[in-house]
């Protein structure tokens, strides 16, 4: 396959109560729990999207990252073929543990469908797709560590084979209050070259 050059149009990092867009801090709070940080971020974005409060932490993390990157992109009158390629290490384990706790004690057995549905990592892709009306290719992968090589190659395949016009990539890791999200939009034009060396560098920022 003759690879045409692809570019990172913009990128967003969420960690340590801070949100960076293209390397610049755009929002931060004092050290606080993720539930509080995510709520304050939602308020900062001046959103009116009550579904946000039903999401689990992994979905909130991915959703907020996508919001920063796609808020200028969304155009509901036009079909937007932006694929989603996401990955992490802990899958939905944070919610899995919560759900397991709700069924492990016969005396205190209260399985909830509202929790159970989030015991799948790809639910966050559904949440982003719904918000931005992305009827597009989507897949969720699990790796032991951040894997820029795979992410680069797979998103280029989607662009090369015309399965997508753009690709929103994301490493969205959440387990037990430890979190990091690194999301970026890959396009056929732009200024930052899309390759694994640069992805490594931007991830570490």
């Amino acid at each position: 396959m003759t690879a045409k050059k692809t570019y990172i149009q913009s990128f967003c990092t969420i960690q340590n109560n801070q949100i960076l867009m293209n390397g610049e801090v755009v929002f931060s709070t004092e050290p606080t729990a993720f539930s509080d940080f995510s709520k304050k971020t939602y308020q900062h974005l001046e959103m009116n999207y009550p579904k946000f409060f039903k999401m689990d932490n992994l979905s909130k993390l991915a959703f907020l990252g996508a919001e920063f990157l796609l808020k200028s992109e969304s155009n509901f009158s036009k079909e937007n073929n932006t694929a989603l390629v996401f990955a992490n290490k802990s899958s939905s384990l944070d919610t899995d543990v919560k759900y397991q706790n709700s069924i492990s004690d016969a005396e205190n057995y209260y399985p909830s469908p509202a929790v159970f549905v989030y015991t799948l990592p790809n639910i966050c892709l559904g949440e982003i797709s719904i918000k931005h009306q992305l009827k597009s290719e989507n897949s969720f992968f699990i790796f032991a560590d951040y894997n820029p090589e795979f992410m680069e190659k797979y998103s280029n395949i989607l662009l090369e084979t015309l399965k997508a016009d753009k690709v929103l990539c994301g490493w969205v890791e959440y387990y037990n209050e430890n979190y990091k999200a690194f999301l970026y939009l890959v396009d056929k034009e732009g200024e930052i070259e899309h390759n694994q060396e640069i992805l490594k560098k931007l991830y570490k920022q």
Binding site: L84, I123, G126, E127, I130, S136, E137, K163
Partner: peptide
């Protein structure tokens, strides 16, 4: 093809 409904979780 592997395309999302963008409708409901």
């Amino acid at each position: 093809g592997s395309i999302n409904d963008a409708n409901h979780i």
